[in-house]
Simulated assay, not measured.
Amino acid sequence: MTLPTKTRQYSFPQSYTLNAIQLGSFDNLVIQDVPVSAPRATEVLVKTHAVSLQFRDLMVAGGGYPGNLPENLVPCSDMAGEIIAVGDDVKEWKVGDRVCANFAQDKIHNDSLNDEALGGAIHGVLTEYRTFPAQSIVAIPDHLSYEEASTLPCAALTAYNALSSGYEPIKAGDTVLVQGTGGVSIFALQFAIASGATVIATSSSDEKLKVATKLGAKHVINYKTTPNWAEEVVKLTNGVGADRVIEVAGNATLSQSLASVRKGGNINIIGLLGGIGDVPPVDIIRPCIFKQINIRGIYVGSVVQFKNMNKLIAANVETTRPIIDKVFAFEDAKAAYAHLSSQAHVGKVVIKI
């Protein structure tokens, strides 16, 4: 097979840095041909078939993501593709293997680093071809398409990490509260159901809550019509509260998450969809002390966790099948960003390459 010498990829202009917020939009993405090299001894060269988007990608595009970004940043962290070449020292992979890249290239084990995150600290995956360290990729479950598999590295692994690790891994019979119907929340719902838990889901849309019910949520709450949804969660759990809360909105909802979790329960803080601008900080000290709440921040996960998650997915094929809202062509990547930004989606937004 003749290896490609060039790859088409999206990137932000060279002047785009964390401090160049005036660019501040995914509309500034440009597509161009750049050279691609053969893999080094410990690397594999992968042909990208699909990329999925995250809220983080919108933050990066808007200049609101913390940390230093490389010049001409290639965005996006989540991909699925096919190995087309392997380095001389690579023994565990072969040409034709279907793989995903882990979000953090250096996070192999649960206690290892988390500094080389794709589409942020290092160049991402919105490109036709890319090399990866052989140890940082994971085999795709056989039953999933490339589009479905592209949703796993960030959203799915974040949800899996939140439920399976930390102070108290999920167990059958637990009650899990998931906020909204975005990527992480939908995967958390699916993994909780696969684990034998009861799920309570919130959303501002009755139509989206119908999807959550179809996926197995036992109770649903529209937080627009029920603004004090924490009180409703406590009622639904016979005055006890939820065992675990998947907190995706940050300070905007944290006070209600604190009120809705049971004594000794767990709140897993995933993101800040509610924004950080004018939202006042939440007093967490008193509820954490008097309710003995365990609060844990989640930043995706490791290669080891990714492999374990895929075992759960393979054992629960229908329950855990990724929910894809819409698939866009590579040339329509900006439209994919716009669709994600609209928050009209349920599940994941995917770009097919």
Rank of each mutant, 00 (worst) to 15 (best):
G24C: 04
L157F: 05
I276T: 14
D142V: 03
R286F: 15
I276F: 13
A101F: 01
S185E: 03
N19H: 06
M1R: 02
C154V: 11
L45N: 03
G180C: 12
N238T: 12
A230D: 15
F191N: 02
S257L: 05
F306Y: 13
M79L: 15
P133R: 10
A61I: 07
M309C: 10
E116P: 00
E82D: 03
S136I: 11
G87V: 03
S204D: 07
I269C: 07
F330A: 13
N19R: 06
V60M: 09
K352I: 03
K94V: 10
L312V: 11
E92G: 01
L118T: 04
V261A: 03
I170T: 05
V240I: 13
S77M: 07
I269V: 08
A121D: 07
D88T: 02
D115T: 04
T48S: 11
D283S: 07
S77I: 07
V234W: 07
I295D: 00
T151D: 12
V74S: 04
N114Q: 11
V303K: 01
S11M: 11
S255D: 10
I276N: 12
I295Y: 09
V282S: 04
L157S: 02
N266M: 13
V349L: 02
T237N: 04
T7P: 08
S205W: 00
Q343Y: 15
G264A: 12
Y16W: 05
S15D: 05
V303P: 00
S195V: 05
K218W: 03
I31E: 09
A101P: 12
R244V: 11
R296A: 14
V240D: 03
T127S: 15
R286Y: 14
A155K: 08
S260I: 06
I295S: 03
T225P: 06
N294R: 07
R8C: 02
V125L: 04
A201S: 15
G277C: 05
G96Y: 05
Q190P: 05
R56F: 10
N251L: 10
A20H: 09
H143Y: 07
E231W: 05
S15N: 06
G173H: 01
R40E: 02
T320Q: 04
L69V: 01
V95E: 08
T175V: 15
L23K: 05
T5G: 09
D206M: 00
L254Q: 04
T127H: 11
L163Q: 06
F55T: 01
A333P: 12
G124E: 08
L45M: 09
G119N: 09
T151A: 12
A259T: 10
A155S: 15
G239K: 00
L340G: 04
S165Y: 14
G124Y: 08
N161P: 07
D57P: 00
R321T: 14
T7R: 15
F12W: 04
V303L: 01
Y160I: 07
D33N: 15
K307Y: 03
M309H: 09
P35D: 09
T253H: 08
A194C: 09
G87D: 03
I193E: 08
I200M: 06
E331F: 10
L118V: 13
T48N: 14
I293C: 13
K334Q: 15
D27R: 10
F12Q: 01
C154P: 06
A249Y: 09
M79T: 14
I323L: 14
L209G: 02
A192K: 01
A149T: 06
S342R: 09
K326Y: 13
V349S: 07
N102Y: 11
F55E: 06
